[in-house]
């Protein structure tokens, strides 16, 4: 690995100041795991890293209000996995984290770093998209909020501007919404997924009011599947056939990318089956605890 400068500012304000630079190789580091992998592989050679680990601890806190859970961007994945608030309000996130990377990575990697990395195989982006989450982005003297769906713009690409930092993630409380995530690996269990399917269903009595389906890993970025969602809108939760139709619609609209984990044609079939199964999981789980 090439030498670089490592700075450890003690406040967010200071960090934002250091990130406001014309040097495009400067990067913020949360847990640093993904950065370090890229640096070891030689695909990233920063002149300077701005470590965020010593900024105010508030940026790692997990809190709740009446209608949302707020997670500081510096919360580690393991802190989120074991958070009482997350487990009771957003159990699908706790379940998802159990199979995300491994214990050691979860102990170090942060939510903000995970989202900003924009690796299309990540598990959290589709889940957060299905749950309707947004990120709060800070830059020197400004702050904005953006749906997670609009954060990730392509293969390892985000809409973050230079000098901007994700500081919080806001996830609406789900109340009567049921959700599920399926991580599909086609080789060993610890492989990157060939497909991630997250669904969240709003139910009014026996009728589905709204469905959000976000699919990842098979594309260059997580995507909503609008046609499949449309099939479900207004359908009865007891109608098994509608789940099949939704799976078919998902397969029809998806344009998966082939790689060593599967061909495009096979991934399309996986989408068909696992969208249906994820919908079934969500209906069965009914938002149960992990």
């Amino acid at each position: 690995m090439r030498p670089f400068e490592l700075l450890e500012p003690s406040s967010l304000r200071e960090a934002l100041g250091l990130l406001d630079t014309a040097d495009e190789t400067v990067r913020p580091a949360g847990g640093g795991t993904a950065l370090m992998l890229m640096m070891k592989a030689g695909v990233l050679e920063p002149s300077r890293l701005i470590s965020l680990r010593r900024i105010e601890p508030a940026w790692a806190e997990i809190s709740q209000s009446a209608d949302a859970v707020e997670i500081g961007a510096l919360a580690t994945l393991s802190a989120i996995e074991h958070s009482g608030i997350v487990r009771s309000e957003l159990p699908v996130i706790a379940r998802t984290l159990r199979t995300l990377a491994n214990v050691r990575v979860r102990n170090v990697a942060t939510l903000g770093g995970n989202l900003a990395h924009a690796d299309p195989h990540m598990d959290l982006p589709p889940v957060l998209i299905a749950l309707g989450a947004s990120v709060i982005i800070a830059s020197r003297g400004a702050e904005r909020e953006l749906p997670v769906a609009e954060l990730i713009s392509g293969y390892y690409e985000t809409t973050l501007a230079s000098g901007e930092l994700i500081v919080r993630v806001r996830v609406p409380k789900q109340f009567a919404r049921f959700s599920a995530y399926r991580k599909i690996t086609t080789r060993s269990a610890d492989d990157w997924p060939a497909l991630g399917v997250a669904v969240a269903l709003d139910r009014e009595g026996p009728v589905l009011r709204e469905a959000r389906i976000a699919v990842s890993a098979a594309f260059d970025r997580p995507l909503r599947l609008a046609a499949a969602e449309a099939v479900l809108r207004g359908a009865s939760i007891d109608d098994e056939a509608v789940l099949i139709h939704a799976g078919d619609a998902a397969a029809d609209e998806a344009r998966p990318i082939a790689d060593e984990r599967g061909s495009a044609a096979y991934k399309r079939e996986l989408i068909r089956v696992h969208v249906r199964r994820a919908l079934r999981d969500a209906l069965d789980a009914q938002g149960g605890t992990p």
Binding site: R187, S188, A189
Partner: peptide
């Protein structure tokens, strides 16, 4: 070789 790493060449782990 296009998958020369343990991330992309998958050996069995406990769950397998």
């Amino acid at each position: 070789v296009t998958n020369p790493s343990l991330a992309d060449y998958k050996i069995p782990g406990m769950l397998d």
